[in-house]
């Protein structure tokens, strides 16, 4: 619909919308997170859900204890290599459409444990992350900002066409390969379909 016409109509008191907008409006205002925490970031996530920060203002207060009822996975904390397969499996068990917020330095990159042998260097190696939050730990405001960012992204998703999101495309996978414990590392060490090592241009 033409934006000018829409603004004219809204001035005249006529509200117009499209099926796509209605669908996204409903989805973005009822993002139900999965209730699980991996490390200290989870404490900030809990704080964000309590009265002072009140994540309920964004329709995301219904923390579900089962992946079958959740839309959003907040990876709050250090993902150890022992825990990574379980996190991926939980993600696989969530129904579509599903989103991931990687919360804190550990979840996005390994954080202070990046050089350690037992910590995954970012959960985006195995599952598609929608919003990354830096910080150690991020304040509840940062989590709220991530949620708002996610809501904006949901709002912009197309219902049809080539740019439609994964959950509306029958050819896109809904489950991602679960890594297994190998002799030295997780196998495979990353999912090449969604993550590749950043290329560094050393100029030589």
């Amino acid at each position: 619909m033409d934006e000018g016409l829409r603004s004219e109509l809204s001035k005249a008191g006529v509200f117009t919308t499209s099926l796509n907008e209605l669908y996204n409006w409903g989805r973005k205002n009822s993002v139900w997170p999965l209730q699980f925490g991996l490390a200290c970031c989870a404490i900030e996530m809990i704080a964000a859900s309590m009265a002072r920060f009140d994540i309920a203002r964004f329709g995301a207060e219904v923390f579900r204890p089962s992946p079958r009822q959740a839309d959003l996975m907040i990876v709050a904390g250090t993902v150890t290599k022992k825990m990574a397969p379980q996190v991926v499996r939980l993600y696989n068990q969530m129904p579509e459409p599903k989103y991931v917020i990687a919360m804190g330095a550990c979840a996005i990159s390994g954080g202070p444990f990046k050089q350690g042998y037992n910590v995954l260097k970012g959960i985006d190696r195995y599952i598609p992350v929608d919003v990354h939050i830096p910080g150690c730990p991020p304040r509840p405001e940062a989590l709220l900002h991530a949620l708002m960012t996610l809501q904006k992204r949901i709002e912009e998703q197309a219902l049809t066409g080539e740019t439609r999101p994964r959950h509306l495309d029958a050819n896109q996978p809904s489950e991602f390969p679960i890594p297994a414990f190998g002799a030295h590392d997780l196998e495979p060490p990353s999912n090449p379909a969604i993550w590749s090592p950043p290329k560094t241009d050393r100029g030589c």
């Binding site: 992946p67 068990q93 809904s174 489950e175």
Partner: peptide, 19 residues
């Protein structure tokens, strides 16, 4: 609009991340 997306993990009986 939205096609079915099922899979072995999603259809598993147990739902806490462990097999």
């Amino acid at each position: 609009y939205s096609p079915r997306k099922s899979g072995p993990s999603k259809n598993a009986v147990y739902e806490c991340g462990l097999e």
